[in-house]
C-alpha cells in the first residue's frame, strides 16, 4: 500500500513537523524537532511533476508531450508550482526563526 505522508494536522490543520526518526536496520530512534524539507511539503502531484521535469532535463516541450497539455499550460503549471515552492521555503524559514 502506498502511504501518503500527512502534511497537516487532521485536528487543527496546522503544519506537521518530524519528531521521531528510526533506523530501519538497528531500530535506533532519534527524537527532535525537524521541519519537513520544502519539497516534501508539496502535494504528491506537485512532487511527481518535479520528478518528471527533472527526468526530462527541464524541458517544458517534453513535459508538454508527456502530459498531453499545451506548452503554455505546462509553463503555467510550473509557475504555480514555483509559487508553492517559494511559499514552502518561506514557511520553513519562518519556523526556523
Amino acid at each position: 500500500m502506498n502511504r501518503i505522508l500527512p502534511l497537516h494536522c487532521p485536528s487543527c490543520s496546522q503544519s506537521l513537523i518530524v519528531r521521531n526518526l528510526q533506523c530501519v536496520n538497528c531500530e535506533t530512534m532519534v527524537n527532535g524537532h525537524f521541519d519537513l524539507p520544502a519539497l516534501a511539503r508539496l502535494s504528491s502531484d506537485d512532487q511527481q511533476f518535479i520528478i518528471e521535469f527533472v527526468k526530462k532535463s527541464g524541458s517544458l516541450k517534453e513535459m508538454s508531450k508527456s502530459l498531453g497539455f499545451s506548452y503554455p499550460t505546462v509553463r503555467n503549471m510550473l509557475n504555480d508550482l514555483i509559487e508553492r515552492v517559494v511559499s514552502a521555503e518561506k514557511h520553513n524559514s519562518t519556523n526556523n526563526n
Binding site: 498531453g68 497539455f69 499545451s70 506548452y71 503554455p72 499550460t73
Partner: peptide
C-alpha cells in the same frame, strides 16, 4: 482547447 493546443499547431 488551449489547455491542449497552442503555439504553432494552433496557429
Amino acid at each position: 482547447p488551449f489547455v491542449y493546443i497552442a503555439g504553432w499547431s494552433s496557429l
